[in-house]
């Protein structure tokens, strides 16, 4: 991750689909290549964040600790 920013989007306490909407708003504001860590504790986020990445052609990197999901902007 050297030389790249790690942004964090804290969506804990929000019900899906709000975390995915927040992700969709935030990611385009970041430079291509940036990794965004989404924190979300709604159980549907574990399904919806990877699914959104696939639909939008962004890279889902996997879970990161409790309630964390890492997404890289690729386009």
């Amino acid at each position: 991750m050297a030389g790249r920013q790690m942004d964090v989007l804290d969506c804990r306490g929000q019900r899906c689909p709000l975390p995915v909407i927040a992700l969709a708003r935030r990611l385009p504001e970041l430079p291509v290549g940036t990794v965004l860590r989404v924190l979300a504790d709604d159980p549907a986020a574990a399904n919806d964040i990877p699914a959104w990445c696939r639909l939008r052609g962004q890279e889902y990197l996997g879970v990161a600790g409790a309630d964390g999901y890492d997404v890289r902007r690729v386009s």
Binding site: R15, C16, P17, P43, N47, D48, W52, L55
Partner: peptide, 24 residues
């Protein structure tokens, strides 16, 4: 703005989860 959460549990549909598609 829809949701397929089973209304009583707020968990996403196990069918959509198994398919790996958006549950909302």
């Amino acid at each position: 703005s829809g949701s397929s959460c089973t209304s009583s549990t707020l968990r996403p549909s196990h069918v959509l989860e198994a398919m790996g598609v958006l549950s909302h």
